[in-house]
């Protein structure tokens, strides 16, 4: 059992991070903390992708001069595709964070606080 956990430790880490992020999004009252939770959540998945692309003992996928003459052995290289996908995902993540921060600023300008329960209080008072 212990062996099982250790041998796949990268996946366990990603699941742990994901749950941490989920907790942040649900459990925290501060909007910025929620956002940080969301970021952790996204990063966890990015780590997951990174680890599915990697191989033990393989190097980064850059062809050496040697390979150009013979045929390149795919076993010597990590799979680059998941990593490329994650470049896109990182960009998407940044954009989401940007939009979310923008919205948080709007919220702050309107209510002068970032605590969710206080905002609810204010909105209840103003009758909206």
């Amino acid at each position: 059992m212990f062996e099982y956990i250790v041998s796949k430790y990268n996946y366990w880490v990603y699941i742990f991070l994901m749950m941490l992020g989920l907790y942040g999004m649900i459990g925290k009252k501060n909007l910025v903390k929620k956002l940080i939770g969301m970021n952790i959540f996204q990063v966890a998945i990015i780590l997951f992708y990174i680890s599915i692309g990697s191989k033990v003992g393989a190097s980064i996928p850059i062809l050496t001069a040697e390979d150009l003459h013979g045929s390149a052995n795919p076993l010597h290289y990590m799979n680059p595709l998941p990593h490329v996908l994650m470049l896109t995902a990182i960009v998407v993540g940044i954009a989401t964070t940007g939009v979310a921060l923008g919205i948080i600023i709007m919220v702050y300008n309107r209510y002068k606080t970032l605590a969710e329960d206080e905002i609810l209080e204010i909105r209840k008072k103003s009758g909206v």
Partner: peptide, 29 residues
């Protein structure tokens, strides 16, 4: 008035949804 808060909740929920989706892609991949 309520729009920014609604949008923020949507961001959180929407991102979780999208993350699940691309996590799914990962497993299939």
């Amino acid at each position: 008035d309520g729009a920014p808060m609604a949008a923020f909740n949507y961001v959180i929920m929407g991102t979780v949804g999208a993350c699940f989706y691309y996590l799914g892609i990962g497993y299939v991949y």
